[in-house]
Amino acid sequence: MRCVVGQQSIRNLIESLQTHRVNTLTELCRIERVAASCDSEEDARAFQGPMTAAWNYYVTSNQMLSELRGLTRSYPFCGDILTEAQASVRNDPDSNRSWNLAWLCLVKIQDDNLIATYAASEAARPEMWGGRMPEPEEADQLAACFQYEWDMAVHNMLRHWSVAPTWY
C-alpha cells in the first residue's frame, strides 16, 4: 500500500521540501502528516532526508522565529531563546529521537524553562526602560507579560502535533 497521495504527488512534495517552496509550520506539518501516512517503507524513507532538512531549514532560516514573533505582536519573541534551544538540542544526545528540529526546539524551550529565564533577564534590561534601571516590581510585571505571550506562542505551535514526531 502507498501513501495517501500518488507517486507523482510524493515526488512533488519532496521537491517542495528540497527547494524550500514550503517553509511554514502549517505546510511542513501537512507534509509531515502525509509522510507519516505512508504504509510503504520505500515511500516513508524517501521523505525522511528531505523532511529532516526542511525542518532544519525552517529553524535556521529564521522562519520559525518570524512565526513566533507573528504570534507575539505585543511582546516580540526573544530570538535568544530559540538560539539557546537550538544549541541545547544539538548538544543533546537524545535529540536523535526526532527528525523535526522545530518540535525538538519547542520541547526544549518548555522543558528547560527558557521562557521564564529570558523573560526575567529581558525585562530587567535598562534598554527596555529608556536606559534607566527598572524597579523590581516593574521588571517583574514586564517579565510576566513576556512570559504569558511567549508561552502561549510556543503552546500554539506545539498544538500542530497531536502525536510527538519521534522515532520511538
Rank of each mutant, 00 (worst) to 15 (best):
A36P: 00
A36H: 09
S37P: 02
C38Y: 06
D39H: 11
S40N: 12
E42Q: 13
D43Q: 15
D43S: 09
A44W: 08
A46N: 11
F47S: 03
F47V: 06
G49F: 02
P50T: 06
M51P: 08
T52Q: 14
A53M: 08
A54F: 08
W55Y: 13
N56T: 10
Y57V: 04
Y57L: 01
Y57E: 08
V59N: 01
V59Q: 02
T60C: 05
N62V: 14
N62G: 11
N62W: 14
N62P: 00
Q63W: 05
M64R: 07
S66Q: 14
S66F: 06
E67G: 05
E67I: 03
E67K: 04
L68G: 06
L68P: 07
L68I: 10
L68D: 05
R69F: 03
G70P: 08
L71W: 02
T72Q: 04
R73A: 15
S74W: 10
Y75E: 14
P76T: 02
P76C: 04
G79I: 04
E84M: 14
Q86P: 00
A87G: 13
V89G: 07
V89A: 06
R90E: 13
N91M: 13
N91G: 15
D92T: 14
D94W: 02
N96H: 09
N96K: 11
N96M: 04
R97W: 00
W99I: 10
W99E: 09
L101A: 10
L101N: 04
A102L: 00
A102W: 00
A102R: 07
W103L: 04
L104K: 12
L104N: 08
C105H: 02
L106P: 04
V107W: 03
K108P: 00
K108S: 09
D112G: 04
D112H: 11
N113T: 10
N113P: 00
N113H: 13
L114E: 11
I115L: 12
I115G: 09
I115V: 15
T117W: 11
T117S: 15
Y118W: 15
Y118M: 13
A119R: 08
A120H: 12
